[in-house]
Amino acid sequence: MLETKQLAFSYDSVRKLQFPDINCARGDQWLILGQSGSGKTTLLHLLGGLLSPQSGSIKINDKDISILRGAALDHFRGQNIGIIFQTAHFVRALTVEENLLLAQQLAGNKPDKILIHNFLEKLNLKDKAHKRTDELSVGEAQRVNVVRALINKPSVILADEPTSALDDHNAEEVIQLLESQAKAVNATLLIVTHDGRLKNYFQKQLVIG
């Protein structure tokens, strides 16, 4: 359901990034490993439709996103892809709950407070619903970040170094959360990282660079 062919990208004429073909089935969980500068983040941005590839194709749910542009791409991304970044960022003016409501709305879904509260409860974040996001601890923020990526039940979840800013305890919590929740919504999970702690959790691994 996620398939890339001869994906290539370059920021300038000197260095060209060439990525190995990826082929994931629905519900697969993959770890993509690579050193800094190996193009991990670039690959994630390509898969998430934040960048357009120079050549090659990316198919998600049989849709070639490399030819999507503008609002159509933004809309497809909102509906089908959940992305988790290294550090959690939120719309600062809004509370935790409002940020999650916004995520639902921007993806074109109906705001569903019950769903949000179920998620928050499962993650022991229920009492944070009406807190401003800058009052959260780093670990809490990353957990809310995971909730936000999952809230629209995407078919693909992309995570860019989701644990590298966290201590062992929080890292374990977040990675278990990702694993279990991706499974719960039957989403394909791709984690891009150089964090060695994660190697034990996932069998399917791809090294690039």
């Binding site: 933004d74 909102g78 960022h89 993806a107």
Partner: peptide, 12 residues
Amino acid sequence: ELALMRVMGAGR
């Protein structure tokens, strides 16, 4: 956060 809103599906 504006870039994030794009990621979440908001068009330009």
